[in-house]
Amino acid sequence: MNIQGENKTQNRILSLLPLWIVIGIFMIGPLLVMATVSLMESNVYGGVHFKFSLSGYQQILFDTNLFDEIEFNPAYIIIIARSFVLALAATFLSLLIGFPAAYYISRQSNRVKNILIFLVTIPFWTNLLIRTFAWIIILGKGGVIESSFNFLGLLDKESSLNLMYTNTAILIGLVYSYLPLMVLPIYASLEKMDVRLLEAATDLYSSRIELIRKIIFPLSMPGIIGGSILVFVPCLGAFIAPDLLGGGKKLLLGSLIQFQFSYARNWPFGAAMAMFLLALVILILIFNAKLNRRHRKYEAQR
């Protein structure tokens, strides 16, 4: 028995070893190196000086101006705030668009349900870059929207709606990118819902609105929270939508980080921003885990 137990442990370790090595070296390793680089001094032409410095982090709030004086610099706070607002807006819009759809799908027959859910997942598995640039064809000058407006006589040939290179365009791109991630968890929690609850409520003369507010919404809460996180987190670090649809005029967190490794060549600052984003995401995930635990407890008590 003992021998078998030892054997089992040995097998387990052997099976898990590749995982530990690969993720340990090539995922945690890079994160650690990045953390180290964020604590070094930047080299103007790119790369780093191997010298300890907090300037990467300091720069998030304070910046030396052109005269080499340290001053409070709200610029990055503005970028962070902009990312937050856009990510929140995208999450809210996804919820608004996705919830009724998720509900509707969850109430179909098994066959239809499976097909519809499959259709929801397809875009998720296709290339994000391609799906985003499809919107250039739709929003761009002379694109699908403008030419249909032209066709309907709502817009003369010379003028433009100027849909591209705006925050709205970025927002559309973000919602489009991550909408499936909102629908799936909501669907999962709605599917489990017992229809008899609704029947009982209706028998007790609940109105439609009350059905949604008092039964459907609370029951789908875990799905809504899960979906919101799945949308919010990638939106925070989005790079493709602002890059292709935003015209590079207004940076978001993701594009700011990428910017530091291309045009600006400030690795420590870019690494510090990445650490900041990572910390934010971890906080959100911890918050989510707490919520889940509380929900499970609540479920258990019922």
Partner: peptide, 13 residues
């Protein structure tokens, strides 16, 4: 060069 980078980063935000 550092001044140029600063100007540009400020412009891009």
């Amino acid at each position: 060069q550092a001044l140029v980078d600063k100007v540009w980063t400020k412009l891009m935000q």
